[in-house]
């Protein structure tokens, strides 16, 4: 069914050495390659456009969803709409992720638009890895959009990472916390190198009473790469939000971090912190006193930072 390159990419983006339990949908080069449903999770193809609907029944526990995407045809442009309907009280882990293997000279691109409707008191952990490889001159481009609507008491953790290989990315995340006591945590990890560009834009809108958000963005920009971050949090009710952006800059890279917090309610409490800097010399020295070379010390620091 899958060739070795596709299997390798599945392993990289979804830790899938084999088909996992739970609901699974594998998309390769714009086609459905594999699908299975689980007891309380049903995946169906959309009729009006490319993509799938993932329906998670209320109260679903201990079931997972894996929906990785693999692109191996150079020059292929893939656009997909995936909608998640998470029923009340469900508690699920969703593993997405996209890997591009481009060994040709044409650009390969995947634009995934994921929309989540998270029901009352439901819990979602969403893990998304992006990865690129291949020796071709064609670019590997990934432009993910993640849109979330959270009802009362819903809790979402987004863990997104892009570590190496993606030439161009424009990431947009929008979360509307409409129900009271809803919470979202966003953990973003990004490493760019060579001449890569990454833009990450985020709007977290805290509409419900006592809603909370924590945004932790960590990035490393190496060589000639560029990164821009726009994390924005809006508090429209009694709420709490904390945005923390940390970037390590290396070589001739350029990083811009433009956090914005907007309070439109007297009981909204929002904080942002942003820091960009090179690896502290003292950290390298410390690890060298433990027997690591300069290069090994640097790598350990980066690995830990992006873990």
């Amino acid at each position: 069914m899958l060739n070795d390159i596709q299997k390798h990419i599945l392993q990289a983006v979804a830790d899938m050495a084999q088909i996992p339990d739970g609901a699974v949908n594998i998309r390769t080069d714009g086609q459905k390659a594999f699908r299975q449903n689980s007891e309380h999770i049903a995946i169906t193809s959309k009729q009006d456009k490319d993509g799938i609907d993932i329906r998670i029944a209320p109260g679903t526990k201990d079931e997972s969803v894996h929906i990785p995407v693999v692109l191996t045809q150079s020059g292929f442009h893939d656009m997909v709409y995936n909608d998640f309907f998470v029923g009340e009280g469900a508690d699920v882990t969703i593993v997405a992720g996209c890997g591009i293997h481009n060994c040709g000279d044409c650009d390969s691109e995947h634009d995934g638009i994921h929309t989540f409707y998270v029901g009352k008191n439901a819990k979602v952990r969403y893990i998304e890895k992006h990865y690129g490889e291949g020796e071709g001159r064609g670019k590997r481009v990934l432009n993910p959009q993640t849109v979330l609507y959270l009802e009362e008491g819903a809790q979402v953790t987004l863990e997104t990472s892009q570590i190496r290989g993606v030439d161009d990315t424009k990431r947009y995340t929008r979360a509307e916390l409409n129900g009271a006591d809803a919470e979202i945590t966003v953990q973003e990890k990004l490493l760019t190198h060579g001449a890569q560009n990454a833009v990450s834009e985020m709007d977290i809108i805290l509409n419900g009473k006592n809603t909370k958000t924590q945004v932790i963005s960590r990035s490393v920009a190496q060589e000639d790469s560029t990164q821009v971050f726009y994390p924005r949090v809006q508090g429209n009710n009694a709420c709490f939000g904390h945005v923390q952006c940390d970037s390590i800059i290396m070589g001739d890279a350029k990083v811009r971090s433009i956090p914005e917090i907007a309070c439109n309610h007297v009981d909204a409490s929002l904080i942002h912190e942003a820091a960009i800097g090179k690896i502290a010399g003292e950290q390298i020295l410390k690890l060298m006193t433990l027997g690591l070379s300069h290069e090994e010390a640097e790598q350990k620091i980066l690995d830990g930072f992006l873990r």
């Binding site: 410390k286 060298m288 006193t289 027997g291 300069h294 620091i301 830990g304 930072f305 873990r307």
Partner: peptide, 24 residues
């Protein structure tokens, strides 16, 4: 270098040790 001396059996505990984001 520092690492070469470390490998030869010299260790040093800093007066003000650095902190690391992400290292446990």
């Amino acid at each position: 270098s520092i690492s070469e001396r470390a490998k030869l059996g010299i260790a040093y505990g800093f007066q003000q040790p650095p902190r690391f984001k992400g290292l446990k």
